[in-house]
Structure formats: C-alpha cells, structure tokens
Design a protein around this nucleic acid. Structure first.
Lengths: 237, 237
DNA sequence: CGAGGGTTTGAAGTGCATCAAATAGTGTGG
DNA sequence: CCACACTATTTGATGCACTTCAAACCCTCG
C-alpha cells in the first residue's frame, strides 16, 4: 500500500513521517458500484484516497436533481476540502465503478500542511491548476454545444501525443457521462450521433475509434478559448 | 496605502516584513474604465491588488466571444495564479469600473508563501472556498433558468442579515452582468422583467427594491442545492 | 441638440429538455 | 444454454428557453 499512497500527485512533497503516520492510521476498503462514501454535510473526520475505480462527487437539490461536481479516476483524493472551517463535506461521494479507497484522518493531513511548506505549496499548485480546469468547464457550458462538449471530453481522454488512429474507451456509463457534461441522456445519444457524422468517429458501445484526431479537434475546439492539447492536468476528470 | 494592502483577506497571515517589502516594491496606479491590465498569455511578473473599482477577468475564443471568469470587487487580488508553472496569465484582465490597483512582484509573494505557513494556509483556505463557489456557479448553469440566476445573483449582493425592505444597486452594466451570468443582454432584460412579475421586485435603472427577500429566495433558490444564506464567501463576485 | 452606447422590445429560429416508447444489452435463475 | 427481468441506450414527437437578428427607445454627455 505504501507506494500507492506515496505516489498520489496531490500528496507529493509530504514528509516520510507524514506518510508513515498516514499508513499507520489509514484503513483500506473496497466499495462496490453504487456505494455512498459519505453524504453532503456529514461531519468530516477523514479524507479519502482513491487507488482504483471511479468516484462521483455530487450535490442534489430538494427535488432530487443531481449536479455533478466531478468524477474522479484512481490517483485522486477527495473529501479533503473541509480541513478548514466547519468541517462538513460540501458534497456527497458515490462509487460509480468498483473502487479501492484508503480512509485517512484529516487531522494528519492538516498537521502536515501546517508544518511542511513543500506539501502546502504542492497542494496550492494543484488547486490552482484545478481551478483553471474548472474555468474551462464553465466556459464550455456557455460556449460549446452538446456535440462539441462530447468531442472535447473525448479529446481529454486521449494521450495527446497519440499519432494516427486512436481508440478510446468511455470510462463509465453514457448516462453518467451525459450528467457529467450537463446534458440529458437523450441529448447525449443524439449529440454523439451528430458527432459521428460530423467528424467520422466510429462508436461501438463504449469504444470510440478514429483515424486521426484532426477532425475532432477542429470540430470541438473551434468554439473554445484554449487550443488543443489543452489537457494540462494530471489527468481527465 | 499600507492599511489597504494589509487588510486584503487573501493576504491575511502575511508577515510584517512581507508587507514591508510589498509596500516598498508595489506601484499604485489608477485605471480608467475599459483599460486592459494584462492580456492572456502575457509573461507574469506581477500580481495585482484591487483597492477600488471593478475588474473583469475573461478569456476569448478566436471569433472574439468572451467568456467571463470573474468580476472582482475591491479587496481582491488577481493575476497571482501563475506563481507556479510557466508563469503566463491564464486570462485577460480589464477594468470595468475605474479602479485603483497596486502592482506588486509575484516573486515577493512566492517567497513569502514558501516560508510562511500561515499565509499559505490562508491562501489554501481561500482557494477552497473559491472552488466551492465555482461549483455552485457550474451547478447554476445547468439547474437554474435565466430569471433564477439573476435572482440568485441579487441575493448574493444583499447583506444576509438585512430585514424588511431592501435596496440593491447593480454594481456594473446590465450587459456585463448578463455576460457574467452566461446569457445574452436581451435574455437578461426579458428575464429581469419576468423576475419582476414573479417576485414583486421593483427595478429602476440600476436600482432594485423589494419589500422582503422571501419571495425572491423561494423563487430563485428552489432549483439550487444550497439554501439561502449561501453566500459564505468574503463577498460577491 | 445630436451622437453613441446601453437597454428594451419584437419576430423568428435553434438547441436542448421532456415525455413516451422501442430496442439493445446484461445478468439472473431455471 | 435459454428465457426473463431489468437497466442502459436509442429514437420519435413535441414544447420551451434561450439565441439571433432587427429595430426602437432611452439616457447621458459633449
């Protein structure tokens, strides 16, 4: 386990004693699809380290409509933001693909942050990058239409350097993906069909293929303020 | 000047020597409406402290469409995010209401952050709060319609504790406000009219009055995952 | 008083949501 | 290995919200 925690990007810069404490205190747990890790406004004692699977962070309105904050792949942490202030989780977390998660006390993280500038600098830098990504998401919502948003998402799944023909696997349900992109499942389905005819991508279930990225890039990125290899983040979300 | 810089929330926790250095190096400048402070992808040497007026942060696509990242009131800093990485501004900054701005070297801030945990903790905490606000903005874009978004914005301008009748002054152009809320000026105008008839607010130019917040709250917050006094931020944006 | 930008109003078009229903796909127990 | 149940996905038809284009209005300021 040590390695998997020590190599989490957002914890880079942590001291040895920090990781030792973390390993001593953390509990590893397996979660099946659909399991809730915590719920909005739970008292936050722990933060979570995702080493495999996918986790959805979301909020919901009174009528049950969910709005998705993020869908995290392995290698990310979540539930760490209540270190400051009241200490309530600002969102709920649900496993959407069977996951391995380490549960670790926030107090250890907080203590380390207060004494280890390297870690807090690293965390600042991650938050800033994250914010930039979020700026883009907001931009996309107003500037791109549904097919373009899907195309943009696909592009962020691709290794930028990829040459020639490309194969992508959608990481989770189309229904969830639709929600993640802020549209209805029906709209997603139609928009994907449109993307197919516009850019020549081939879709088969959760597999998407194309001969080159060019058409997808010129179709999707046209309406955006960033240029293609825009995915300067650790990874997709 | 000292005081105005020392009381900026995001710089709270800075050491005396930090503020001394800042005051020695910073240049105060007045900017008229419409002036650009810096442009997207400029090399970032300085960050900016806004002590009066309003500044718009934005990006634009090739065809000139702007997407607004934020509109800052006095008391905020901007252009500080390139402390890490390459050091290019990720957005452009334009004064939208005549502003007083202090220009200060990023290097001073960076150095202080690396040595003063109090400041970096404070900054982390601010970024986290900011992120939460941004989560809400994204939610609003998908969950609220135009009149509700306007109502929500108005509510965030109000002092929460206000009792009885309330008067609000729109802080800048309606056209800009529309862009800030991700809609067209025409839509804004119509949506505001609808809000008027639905909630009984009275609009006169840039002045908005109402007898009580109740109707506005129940109309606007119905579709949101947060409850009314949701503006747990330093101030509006 | 006239020019120009901000704001409103009107008419028409587009994209997405919604409701309804068909189809494909997956896992289950027999 | 098949039939059933259940969910994910697609397709169709319709409505609504917002955009777009056009023009009028209003207000401020030289």
């Amino acid at each position: 386990m040590g390695d998997s925690i020590r190599s989490i990007p957002i914890l880079e810069g942590g001291s040895d004693s920090f990781f030792d404490k973390l390993e001593a205190a953390a509990i590893g747990r397996k979660y099946g699809k659909g399991k809730l890790v915590f719920v909005h406004e739970d008292q936050a004692e722990n933060f979570y380290i995702l080493t495999s699977g996918w986790v959805k962070l979301f909020r919901e309105t009174l009528d049950g409509t969910q709005s998705i904050i993020d869908i995290l792949p392995a290698g990310h942490t979540f539930g760490e933001t209540p270190i400051f202030e009241g200490g309530l989780y600002p969102y709920s977390a649900e496993v959407v693909e069977a996951a391995d998660i380490y549960i670790a006390p926030l107090s250890i993280l907080k203590e380390e942050l207060e004494t280890n500038t390297k870690l807090s600098m690293n965390m600042l830098s991650h938050l800033i990058r994250y914010k930039r990504q979020q700026d883009r998401e907001l931009e996309h919502m107003t500037v791109q239409n549904a097919p373009q948003r899907i195309g943009c998402f696909l592009l962020r799944l691709v290794n930028q350097s990829e040459q020639g023909s490309v194969v992508i696997h959608l990481p989770y349900d189309k229904t969830l993906l639709a929600a993640r992109l802020g549209m209805q499942p029906e709209t997603f389905s139609r928009a994907l069909a449109k993307l197919k005819e516009q850019t020549g991508i081939r879709v088969n279930g959760a597999t998407v293929e194309m001969d080159s990225l060019d058409q997808l890039v010129s179709y999707s990125c046209a309406a955006c303020s960033s240029e293609f290899p825009c995915n300067d983040l650790t990874d997709c979300k």
